[in-house]
Amino acid sequence: MSASANDEKLSPDFHVAHHFDTADQQFDSARMGIWLFLVTEILFFGGLFCAFFIYRSWYFSSFVEAHHHLDKVMGAVNTCVLIFSSLTMALAVRSAQVNDKAKTVGFLIVTILCAFGFLVVKYFEYQHKIHDGLLPGVHFTAQGFSSPHPGTFFAVYFMMTGIHGLHVIIGIGLILWILLRAQRGDFSARYYAPVEGVGLYWHLVDLVWIYLFPLLYLVG
């Protein structure tokens, strides 16, 4: 590993922040920070998973009945879209690692498109739910449910998918930011921590959905 080889690949804007001694230290710190942040995200969603398991156990028949009102196909499509976007995100990080700016930008664009696709499907799903009166709590107006408290399922559904959707929207913003910086040539094999950080965040968004999809759409 020759230092000069690395230096050549340093992007012009890159410098080690004043309080770090080395680029390694900076890179390691950033990644550890991101991982700790992901912990907080997991526990944040964890509260909703806890609520899901409890109310599912209490109102089992209601959950089973209510989950049939979710569109399995749309859920499955969104799962595929999100998994694919996770792939392209991972490839974008890989491209940054090997100094392939064009591919980094390209993969990031695909990722963003997938994210928008996900939101569009989600929009249609929400529209159907709202139209059918399948809303949480007091707003639940749908008729013909045989079990009590179907509103509870939809409270959990809307809170979980809503907060997840919010994360997707934030993710779009972050990827866009990375995209612009990549376009500007900020990243290189030696400095790609932001790409990796946003990538990790995006994988977590995917990871949460990997649980949400079967729990809400498939088993209810």
Binding site: W58, P136, H149, G151, A155
Partner: peptide, 13 residues
């Protein structure tokens, strides 16, 4: 919005 996660009237706990 009274979503009923904690409200006992709506089945919450």
């Amino acid at each position: 919005f009274q979503i009923g996660i904690f409200d006992p009237k709506l089945g919450g706990d």
